Computed example of a mutant assay.
Amino acid sequence: MRTVHVELGSRSYDILIGSHLLNQLGELMRELGLGRKALLVTDTNVGPVYGARVTEILTRAGFQVAMVQVPAGEKAKSLEQAARLYDAAFDHELDRNCPVVALGGGVVGDLAGFVAATYMRGVPFIQVPTTLLAQVDSSVGGKVAVNHPRGKNIIGAFYQPKLVLIDTGTLDTLDRRNLKAGLAEVIKYGVIWDASFFRWLEENIHAALNKNIQVLDYIVEKCCSIKAAVVARDETEQGLRAILNYGHTIGHALESITDYRTYLHGEAVAIGMVYAARLAVAQGMLKESDCQRITGLVHAAGLPTTMPPELAINELIKLMYHDKKVSSGSLTLVLPTGIGSVKIIKGFPEAEIAKTLANLQG
């Protein structure tokens, strides 16, 4: 078992990483001194595979478990589904020491975390991510939210979990499309922080796609370590943490313009990273050779690198203004300056974005 510590003073917690860790979840939660009623939140994809097993594990450890399944997919990150979970918490008589446990991918973690942060002004939150994207990114750092029709993750909070338990064995049941989508966030960490990790990914991406467990364990630990370091220095995104949004401003707009029906989050971020790299080249900030390496690794991971030619660029840019990083009506972009480094650009000219995107669309 590998352990990554997230240092946040009184809100510090451990990320435990390894295969076959699910069986330890109940005992680890009991050691935290939590209340003995637990709300287990999962979705219609993960619930049938792991729901009964996790319920049994927690029951053996002395917890009374109420499990709620939400619909799979981004649409579940809504106030409507949050209301369902509040009702379940009331019905199960959760008090302020009783945990909400998220079992699933990033959508489940964001939704369950939002409910944990707001029910009774905050109850303990446990993350058990089962997708690669959630394991390397969304389960760590305390961002929880639901979507609004006008923007993704607009209604949310910073709320840290008490524990993140990552059983990489759950990736055995992850479909190939979602595995590749998770690799987009993995590639992001190499671009924004660690050039040697990026090179390692170039050499090992096919092993990751083939679910080599040693490779996946290392990937998860490395990404969690990078994110833990960033979050420890800037928990509420006042500065440095914004680098984690590389590829996301364009990616979120792309998800929105396609009504969350065309792209998985990681697929949209992959395109966003490539286009952000092209913007950086156009601004003279990034060498063409580095842009080609970024594009090449995204492609090698089996991820998309271009938007549909019929996509309306002007509409996409309008949606970019709904991004949480917009300040005083100006766009903020995270652009790479080399492999392993990025720069946060505030007030990026809309005309430059439109010009570059139009050129890329042909």
Rank of each mutant, 00 (worst) to 15 (best):
S330R: 15
R53K: 14
H248I: 09
E202N: 05
M67E: 08
E235P: 05
I205C: 01
D95M: 13
V230M: 04
G362W: 12
V342S: 10
E185V: 09
E31A: 15
L39R: 02
R261L: 11
E267L: 06
D175Y: 10
R293D: 02
L171D: 00
A181S: 13
T44Y: 09
A61I: 05
C98W: 05
P48I: 13
A145E: 09
D43I: 02
S225H: 07
L279Q: 11
I17G: 06
L32A: 14
I192S: 00
K143G: 02
I166L: 02
I250F: 11
C291E: 13
A181Q: 06
H206W: 06
H265Q: 08
G169S: 08
L85V: 05
V128R: 02
P349A: 11
G251K: 02
G296W: 04
G18V: 03
A66G: 11
Y189P: 08
R261E: 14
Q69F: 03
T59K: 13
S289E: 15
V46H: 05
L40Q: 08
E203Q: 15
L201G: 06
I226K: 06
A280Y: 09
N314L: 14
L316P: 03
P124Y: 01
S139P: 06
G105D: 05
E255D: 08
R278D: 13
T55L: 11
K318G: 10
R150M: 15
G106K: 02
T55K: 12
K37Y: 08
K318C: 13
P99H: 03
G251T: 04
E352A: 14
S139H: 01
G104K: 04
T170L: 04
L174H: 05
V164F: 06
K287L: 14
G109A: 02
L183P: 01
I192H: 09
A83Q: 11
H299G: 13
V191K: 04
L316C: 03
V186Q: 00
H322K: 12
F114D: 01
P124E: 09
V140N: 04
I313S: 06
L264C: 06
E31D: 14
T173G: 03
A312K: 15
I192L: 05
T55P: 01
R11D: 12
S328N: 14
C224V: 10
T131H: 10
A229T: 11
I339L: 09
D95Q: 13
K343G: 12
L183N: 01
V115E: 02
D91M: 12
Q24W: 04
P349I: 10
G51Y: 00
G302N: 07
Y159E: 03
D14L: 04
F63H: 03
R30G: 08
R84F: 12
V146N: 08
P309W: 09
L40I: 01
G296K: 01
G284F: 11
P129A: 07
G9A: 04
V115Q: 01
V54Y: 08
H299E: 15
V4D: 04
T295A: 14
E185Y: 07
G296H: 04
V6E: 04
L171N: 01
R53C: 10
V334G: 00
R96M: 06
M307E: 12
H92Y: 11
L34G: 05
A76T: 06
G347N: 13
D194R: 06
P71N: 05
C98P: 07
D43C: 07
S10E: 15
